[in-house]
């Protein structure tokens, strides 16, 4: 009599942590997939003392490296391709902010041309991504 009941109560313990394991797996896969979305170009961002937090869900990035190479969504593109690509993105999300992830040593002329393209696409809200200086 006693032996049988002992077995019954012993079997309940592993099933209770099963749900936790399932949650852990779900969260693990969520986290790993988010981090692989965008890689961009290798750059070193300029530093700044001021700056604002910009909500990630409103941002589309334009990457410019030190040699002046431009990339959107991991695609290396020419400067004149910015206008049609940004127009398409703006149609999906009119509140879009274009964030420039530009290397501090990139020539300013490339940035000026890129901003000229944005003006033509009517994407007027931009942000220059920086790393905050600890002061």
């Amino acid at each position: 009599m006693n032996l049988r009941r002992k077995e019954g109560s012993g079997a309940k313990i592993p099933t209770s942590s099963m749900a936790d394991i399932a949650f852990l797996l779900i969260i693990f896969f969520m986290v790993t997939t988010i981090f692989k979305l965008e890689e961009g170009l290798p750059i070193s961002l300029p530093r700044s003392a001021a700056g604002e937090k910009i909500p990630r869900e409103k941002i589309a990035h334009i990457w410019v490296d030190a040699a002046g190479t431009v990339a959107i969504d991991d695609l290396v593109i020419g400067i004149s391709d910015i206008e049609p690509l940004v127009l398409a993105k703006l149609r999906e999300n009119p509140a879009l902010i274009i964030a420039f992830n530009t290397d501090a040593n990139a020539p300013y002329g490339v940035m000026d041309d890129a901003m000229e393209q944005l003006k033509r696409a009517n994407a007027l809200s931009v942000s220059f991504t920086t790393t905050l200086e600890e002061s």
Partner: peptide, 19 residues
């Protein structure tokens, strides 16, 4: 908490003049 405190991006926002 690791997931929800994703680092916000820091930037200098600016509104460009319309062409």
């Amino acid at each position: 908490f690791i997931v929800s405190t994703s680092f916000p991006e820091i930037g200098l926002p600016l509104i460009l003049p319309s062409s």
